[in-house]
């Protein structure tokens, strides 16, 4: 016969073990942030990214399922620097979760954790195209920034979940160690690119250039976010020939026609670089991302 006083202890045990394993719900705007949060948070967090690494995070489309994710989140990680301004503010309002509103501990804007490049001063007009006054938001493409980001995430996880703070710190240290080791290998592998002029499709690789020492001298887009025209392409073509620019780097989601045209007329090497974790199958971690970028740049050189 089952009596209440017999099953009560079991119930208590069940409740405690359940809360003991209640993972922190972390929602991120991009897969890069998700990968870092998973690395640092381990088994104590449940991470979901709002956008896939295959898409351009400037232009995510807010879906209703995102509202549910943000509604239930304990921590929201954002790239910031206006990267998500086109879709995150209405999503935050619709999700009505005060914990993850800006200014609360459940909201972490990682652009505050890294040195931001390309900040604009003076008059910022949209006549210049899709420019960000707050600076260039593609900062996760410098592996050194990955360390800053992971550190900030570990600190915030520790604040929200003090019980496992030491564990987050330990996991961050391990990440930092591995990353620093790998960075030396990546930099050595790409040392031949040092000082070389490179053309990018969009203004999204300045951090990568900074990390590996090459120079981005021009973009395929005449202005950020403005599609190239025949005139702008022929001007770029002349420059590539005159300055002997050997590399064009671009994200997989941009049109390839312009790059093919430039390649056919100048022989410039075109490297389609995964710009985010999840941009291609097999890129599941922050390390995978740079492994893939380095291999892509190396292969392009050899071809």
């Amino acid at each position: 016969m089952i009596r209440l006083h017999n099953i009560l202890p079991a119930l208590f045990l069940l409740t405690f073990s359940a809360t003991g394993h209640a993972a922190l719900r972390v929602v991120t705007t991009t897969q890069d942030l998700a990968a870092l949060a998973e690395t640092v948070g381990g088994e104590y967090v449940k991470v979901q990214s709002l956008t896939p690494g295959t898409s351009d995070p400037h232009f995510a489309v807010a879906k209703p399922s995102m509202i549910r994710k943000v509604f239930r989140a304990d921590l929201l990680l954002v790239i910031g620097a206006d990267m998500e301004i086109g879709w995150l503010p209405p999503l935050l309002q619709a999700a009505r979760n005060i914990r993850v509103q800006p200014g609360n501990p459940g909201h972490l804007d990682l652009s505050g954790a890294v040195p931001i490049l390309g900040k604009l001063s003076g008059s910022v007009s949209r006549a210049l195209g899709d420019v960000h006054a707050k600076g260039n938001p593609h900062y996760w493409l410098d592996p050194r920034n990955g360390v800053h980001m992971a550190r900030a995430i570990a600190a915030r996880l520790g604040k929200l979940d003090p019980e496992h703070a030491a564990e987050y710190e330990r996991r961050f240290r391990a990440f930092e160690q591995t990353l620093n080791d790998k960075l030396l290998v990546w930099q050595a592998t790409l040392s031949h690119l040092k000082g070389k002029p490179v053309v990018a499709y969009h203004t999204s690789f300045i951090y990568l250039a900074d990390a590996f020492g090459f120079r981005i001298v021009d973009e395929v887009e005449p202005k950020p976010g403005i599609a190239p025209s025949a005139a702008s392409l022929s001007a770029l073509l002349a420059r590539i020939t005159a300055d002997r620019i050997g590399f064009l780097i671009m994200e997989p989601y941009y049109e390839r026609r312009s790059a093919r045209y430039l390649n056919e007329h100048t022989g410039i090497h075109v490297a389609v670089l995964p710009q985010s974790v999840g941009a291609r199958k097999g890129i599941d971690s922050y390390f995978d991302l740079f492994d893939a970028i380095v291999i892509e740049l190396l292969n392009t050189e050899e071809n």
Binding site: P52, T54, S55, D56, H58, F59, A60, V61, K63, G225, P252, Y253, Y254, E255
Partner: peptide
């Protein structure tokens, strides 16, 4: 209903 492929440029 909306279909949006995995790889998009400007949405």
């Amino acid at each position: 209903m909306k279909w949006l492929p995995a790889r998009t440029q400007r949405g």
